[in-house]
Amino acid sequence: MPVRRGHVAPQNTFLDTIIRKFEGQSRKFIIANARVENCAVIYCNDGFCELCGYSRAEVMQRPCTCDFLHGPRTQRRAAAQIAQALLGAEERKVEIAFYRKDGSCFLCLVDVVPVKNEDGAVIMFILNFEVVMEKDMVGSPAHDTNHRGPPTSWLAPGRAKTFRLKLPALLALTARESSVRSGGAGGAGAPGAVVVDVDLTPAAPSSESLALDEVTAMDNHVAGLGPAEERRALVGPGSPPRSAPGQLPSPRAHSLNPDASGSSCSLARTRSRESCASVRRASSADDIEAMRAGVLPPPPRHASTGAMHPLRSGLLNSTSDSDLVRYRTISKIPQITLNFVDLKGDPFLASPTSDREIIAPKIKERTHNVTEKVTQVLSLGADVLPEYKLQAPRIHRWTILHYSPFKAVWDWLILLLVIYTAVFTPYSAAFLLKETEEGPPATECGYACQPLAVVDLIVDIMFIVDILINFRTTYVNANEEVVSHPGRIAVHYFKGWFLIDMVAAIPFDLLI
């Protein structure tokens, strides 16, 4: 008679799926529990143990900040960024110097990925580790590398530091407007667009060049630039800015003055950032001319202004700041037409079709709590990747769950009947059967004279019903998954307890 339990259901295979997918890609990662103190490590794979030199037993239950890997060259700011990422709910990448158990130093890129439950609360953290440099290539500990984003994938490793954006290309926007319009339909740009040429040739750093990471940081200074100062900065030398009595002219307006920039070969870094931020506020060169004239017309309804409409929906549905990093990277690809469009465009503009998908598509409701890094690593669709929660398995109709209350009560009843059979069957065979043979035949009273025979008949009927119930009862397979398919249940029961239950259900007393 089957006594099969499996009270692990309803099970959740999400954690096993993450481990299996990460292991298949030869990654070095740990999984931490966000619900406990210090976000203790609950799993670390073999790749991480080989990377740091510690065994799994030495890593388990330690804080996922990996303070046991810190050393003299470990930056405090990087460690603080990892700790801050564990307090938030967004994906974050941090470069930090770690030390192995043998004392060797290596520069590592740590990717902190939160995993949320159905309520939107962070319950786990996945920390992925990628070695960037070994100890002989690690720089000085005073050099802070965590304020910069990861290198873009479309640049060669040897040319990542030679990417320079020439400031004269930004200063000569109005001069290039006529050349853009003359391109017409034969050019790649839309009317009114501004073409910015980027020099990728390796050259020595000069005062006129600005690194790509500095251009990325310009967006942080746009908020500090007032509207009046932006307007004066875009007017140009024809209309000098008016300053109040006793007030000095704005240095932001002076930063885009061609006369002032041409007199000296070098520009201050602050002026460069502010000038680029001011130019980015204009949607095209037409807006710059309109600002000089004193009238700013409404933005025209053409394809170039609607190019950012799908980007707005993608940004609203993005799951991490990696989408913004990807957008900034692609927006700086050289030799393309940049349409400086305000994100607050007309909502009635139709979304044009684009061959290049900048932001990841909208994630469906079932995966809105899973970050983009987890979705990318697992390579699963929205119909396959579940949320991290207890999910009731989908069972067929008329199927009994093996952990249901009805099955528990039924098993206790069958257990009592088995005990009765084990006690009274030998007793009936030894004593009652002998008395029946010696006594007179009682054929007239039937079952009324033999109450134990009636009980034995009921017990046999219950055993037959138990066999039928076992054909529709779920079970737990070797992978700790609840199986509810009727065919698989029948095959599993035939290979197991079916023969024993059938022999126990045969009414031998009635056959004798």
Rank of each mutant, 00 (worst) to 15 (best):
F68H: 01
S322G: 12
Q247T: 12
A85M: 03
K116T: 10
P240G: 09
L173V: 08
E50M: 03
F125K: 01
E177W: 10
M137S: 14
Q247W: 14
I330V: 12
V325R: 12
D213E: 06
E130S: 06
V222C: 09
N369D: 07
P227N: 11
E58S: 04
E130Y: 05
R242A: 10
K332T: 08
P240M: 15
P141S: 06
S55E: 06
F129R: 01
T13Y: 13
I96V: 11
E134R: 14
A156E: 15
K332R: 07
N117S: 07
M124W: 13
G262D: 10
P300G: 07
K344E: 12
S304C: 12
R280E: 10
L349H: 08
E134Y: 06
T375I: 09
H143P: 14
R56K: 06
V295T: 14
R5Q: 08
Q61L: 12
V377Y: 03
P72G: 01
C49V: 14
I330G: 10
L165Q: 13
C64T: 06
R62D: 01
T270A: 12
V194G: 04
V110S: 01
G187F: 06
A79G: 05
G192D: 15
A175C: 09
A57C: 12
Q376D: 03
D136G: 06
L311E: 05
T337W: 14
S272F: 07
V132W: 04
R312C: 14
E95W: 01
R77D: 05
R269P: 14
H309M: 05
V195S: 05
P386L: 01
E289Q: 06
T65E: 07
D219L: 04
L296H: 08
P151G: 12
N117A: 14
S182N: 07
F163K: 15
T162R: 11
D102A: 01
L87S: 07
N369H: 03
L107G: 06
S275T: 06
D199E: 08
L165H: 14
L324P: 12
M137A: 15
P347W: 03
G158H: 09
V131P: 11
D219Y: 06
A78R: 11
R366M: 15
H143N: 06
L324V: 14
K116W: 13
V112C: 06
S354R: 05
G294L: 12
A211S: 13
L15S: 02
N33P: 01
V198Y: 05
D213Q: 06
V195D: 05
Q11N: 15
Y54H: 01
H309Y: 14
D323Q: 08
A80D: 08
A32K: 01
Q75P: 05
S209A: 03
Y54C: 01
L267W: 11
N146D: 03
S140V: 07
V36N: 11
R35I: 08
A223W: 05
L155E: 09
V59P: 01
Y99G: 01
R328M: 05
I126C: 09
V112K: 01
L127W: 01
A83H: 04
A169Q: 06
S322K: 11
R281I: 03
S26L: 07
R312I: 07
A175Y: 03
V59I: 11
N12C: 08
K101Q: 01
C108G: 05
Q335F: 04
G226D: 05
D259Q: 03
D213I: 03
C276F: 04
T216P: 10
R252T: 15
K166D: 08
I330P: 14
S278C: 12
T17H: 08
C108I: 01
S178D: 06
A382L: 05
P205Q: 12
N339Y: 01
P141A: 12
D197L: 01
G306A: 12
A193S: 07
T319I: 11
A190V: 13
L87K: 12
E365C: 12
V222P: 10
I31L: 08
R269F: 12
M133A: 13
E230S: 12
N369A: 13
H7M: 11
I288S: 11
T152R: 14
D219T: 05
R148N: 14
T353N: 14
R281G: 13
R356Q: 07
L109A: 07
D16W: 13
S179I: 12
D342R: 07
A307N: 07
L311K: 12
P150L: 08
C105T: 15
V370W: 11
G294F: 07
G47A: 11
D136A: 06
H147T: 09
G24R: 07
E274T: 14
